[in-house]
């Protein structure tokens, strides 16, 4: 009962986003800017360290592409694709990728011990509070399941080392003090769910 109340509160509290994204326009723009070359056909990445975008939270995609455009998430490979995009175009791209079905869980063998350690760490640090119990995310909090394991390792280490700072600083606080081994375990656990 208690948990249910909290859930309802969290779902309702957000300001009504005036969402204007159009997935069809977004698909055309993704085609024109060749997003698939790096992020994969249908938004499922086959390239090492490239994140999948399919089924990602629209609001998260919007925020991140704006941060690329503004030079606040300084990834050289994303400079050109994000250059000059208007807010409306970014909303379209976000709507397009959010509507694609997310990829499957990783298919390589699951290391049970590693996954168990990852699950433990996730529970200790309450990852599922913000990312939701199934890790599918909510609003600006991204989906972190159905994602490439190598990308998760890479980006979690960047948060820890303050190389990636989000729109707020939540993830830097979360990752404070984590070891590389912890990060490998948590990424393995998440990718194999």
């Amino acid at each position: 009962m208690r948990a249910l109340t909290y859930l309802a509160a969290a779902l309702l509290a957000a300001a009504t986003p005036a969402w204007a994204g159009d997935a069809t326009r977004g698909a055309a723009l993704a085609e024109a800017r060749n997003c698939a070359a790096c992020h994969g056909a249908n938004g499922i990445s086959a390239v090492p360290l490239m994140p999948s975008l399919a089924g990602q939270q629209a609001e998260f995609l919007l925020v991140q592409i704006i941060m690329f455009r503004e030079g606040l998430r300084p990834v050289p490979a994303m400079m050109e694709p994000a250059r000059g995009l208007t807010d409306a175009e970014i909303e379209d791209l976000a709507a397009f990728y959010a509507a694609l079905p997310s990829g499957p869980a990783a298919t390589d063998p699951r290391n049970e011990a590693l996954a168990a350690r990852g699950a433990e760490l996730s529970a200790a640090r309450n990852c599922a509070t913000c990312h939701r119990p199934d890790y599918s995310g909510q609003a600006q909090v991204p989906r972190i399941n159905h994602q490439r394991e190598d990308f998760l390792v890479h980006t979690l280490a960047e948060y820890r080392d303050n190389l990636r700072v989000g729109m707020d600083t939540q993830m830097n606080g979360v990752m404070h003090g984590m070891t590389n081994a912890d990060i490998r375990a948590i990424a393995h656990y998440l990718a194999h769910r």
Binding site: A10, A13, A14, P17, A124, R125, T129, Q170, N172, V174
Partner: peptide, 28 residues
């Protein structure tokens, strides 16, 4: 063992199952 996240330290058991998360800001 593991230090908890910045925001969750000192979390009361009563709030353990909460899914309250910071609200998304708007950049557009």
């Amino acid at each position: 063992g593991a230090p908890p996240p910045a925001w969750a330290q000192g979390r009361s058991p009563e709030m353990a199952n909460s899914t309250l998360a910071p609200h998304a800001g708007r950049l557009t």
